[in-house]
């Protein structure tokens, strides 16, 4: 394993779903590199393919889904790996925190059972040791009265505690990469900040690499130094957070930022992006954003823009230079 190998290198990753209405291309030829210790944010509207991208990393797509391209973890190809070897990656190398902890946790098993089984799936420890480790993990995610919580079922915990337990379960096998898919979306606003703080602290303390997925630029901006913007299954812009916020380039990124209400400037109305997310059964030709794009020209409808380097960022737009000018 070479030291200069990135932790995760996704190249030409596409995810297709066979549906009764035809083939849906939820992720289209995505390139993405995540270095060890990085916190990368993946932002986009619902249906932009960000969650499917995350699931495709460890082969967790629904039965009618298929991933093509390449997903390399420290140089090792994960796509097409036999189920048995993927299992050793899931949880142990790449762990995932899902959106709604109410449905993502098994309702009929105690928190303790769900933690212990994760620990024991990846390490040969006896039940009692695993139980102790499970309690330690609940304490690490700041769940008060951990010993009692171990014996409780998900429905006996508040939303915030449930998501903390979910995070503990995700981290229990000691993964390198934590994929958090909308980890705070199902929570009350006041709890959201606590959980984000917790994730940030854990990432730092344990030297984790984080891929945070959200539709909320505020959430992403709070934790991530680098932001990848997705639209209709493609990466449209990939930049350092400060660059992206100060000088967004892609018209979609600009639209996304303008659509966020600014509480500090109540007179400044949020501007929604006109139009709708395209139907991925028949995506628009060329640049998938062109029907909604204020800068679109004829070329945008014909030629798919490649992701290219423009002023210290990667952007997929034919008119990137004009947009920045």
């Amino acid at each position: 394993m070479r030291a200069d190998q990135p932790l995760l290198r996704v190249a030409g990753l596409s995810v297709r779903f066979d549906t009764p209405d035809g083939e849906v291309r939820a992720v289209d030829c995505v390139d993405l590199v995540v270095d060890r210790g990085e916190c990368v944010g993946l932002v986009g509207e619902s249906g932009s393919g960000k969650s499917q991208l995350a699931l495709a990393l460890t082969g967790l797509l629904a039965a009618n889904g298929r991933a093509t391209g390449s997903v390399r973890l420290e140089g090792r190809e994960l796509l097409g790996l036999p189920e048995r070897e993927l299992r050793a990656v899931r949880g142990r190398r790449i762990a995932t925190v899902f959106q709604d902890p109410m449905t993502a946790l098994a309702p009929h098993l105690t928190i303790g059972t769900q933690l212990v089984e994760t620990i024991r799936a990846h390490a040969t420890v006896d039940r009692a040791t695993a139980r102790t480790q499970a309690r330690d993990w609940l304490e690490r995610v700041r769940v008060p009265d951990a010993a009692t919580r171990l014996r409780q079922y998900p429905h006996e915990l508040s939303g915030g505690l449930r998501q903390r337990a979910m995070i503990a379960i995700a981290l229990a096998a000691g993964p390198d990469l934590l994929v958090a898919d909308e980890p705070t979306t199902a929570l009350d606003v006041t709890i959201q900040a606590q959980v984000l703080r917790l994730i940030a602290d854990l990432v730092q303390a344990r030297g984790l690499t984080l891929m945070l997925i959200s539709h909320d630029l505020g959430v992403i901006g709070a934790l991530c130094r680098r932001i990848v913007v997705m639209y209709a299954g493609t990466v449209v812009e990939d930049a350092v957070a400060t660059t992206l916020f100060d000088r967004p380039c892609h018209p979609y990124t600009r639209g996304l930022l303008a659509a966020v209400p600014d509480l500090a400037r109540p007179d400044h109305r949020a501007q929604p992006i006109p139009g709708h997310i395209p139907n991925l059964l028949a995506p628009p030709s060329g640049c998938r954003f062109h029907p909604r794009c204020p800068l679109a020209v004829d070329r945008c409808a014909q030629e798919k823009p490649a992701l290219r380097e423009v002023e210290g960022r990667r952007v997929a737009c034919h008119r990137a230079e004009e947009a920045l000018a």
Partner: peptide, 9 residues
Amino acid sequence: RTARAKGLS
């Protein structure tokens, strides 16, 4: 899906 994501058999 969570159970699979944890790497269970």
